[in-house]
């Protein structure tokens, strides 16, 4: 199944890097029913990690209560313009994706 790229924006200000991530994912809860009354199976991101160069800066575990196309923002100390930020996620179907961006 094809996955769509994440939008990652990282900006450094006064030694603190703020990272904003917009992931493209259905985040189906498994509680919704379709038109015929059958339950739509759960399909959601379970794990998400962010790295600055190769150093882990955030490890998240998500549940079904996170909105469709999850948005995430966090800040860490350090980082410089041009450094690499990579974000990876994995969903409950075993699908995964990694995208990269440079700190602006």
């Amino acid at each position: 199944m094809a996955t769509n790229p994440m939008k990652i924006r990282a900006t450094n200000k006064d030694g603190v890097t703020e990272v904003k991530v917009l992931v493209s994912h259905e985040m189906e809860t498994g509680q919704r029913k379709d038109a015929s009354g059958a339950i739509v199976p759960a399909w959601f991101i379970t794990e998400l990690t962010a790295k600055h160069n190769d150093r882990l800066v955030l490890a998240g575990e998500l549940g079904t209560a996170v909105s469709k196309n999850p948005y995430l923002a966090f800040r860490f100390k350090g980082g410089a313009k041009g450094d690499k930020i990579s974000v990876s996620w994995k969903d409950n179907k075993g699908e995964s994706r990694t995208d990269e961006a440079a700190i602006a």
Binding site: V16, M27, T29, R55, L56, V57, L58, A59, G60, E61, L62, G63, T64, A65, V66, S67, P70, Y71, L72, A73, F74, R75, F76, K77, G78
Partner: peptide, 19 residues
């Protein structure tokens, strides 16, 4: 809804969107 592990250097400041 979600839990985040913060390594040293990451600020305790996380925003997201939930249902």
């Amino acid at each position: 809804a979600a839990s985040f592990t913060l390594p040293e250097g990451t600020e305790a400041n996380v925003q997201t969107r939930v249902k």
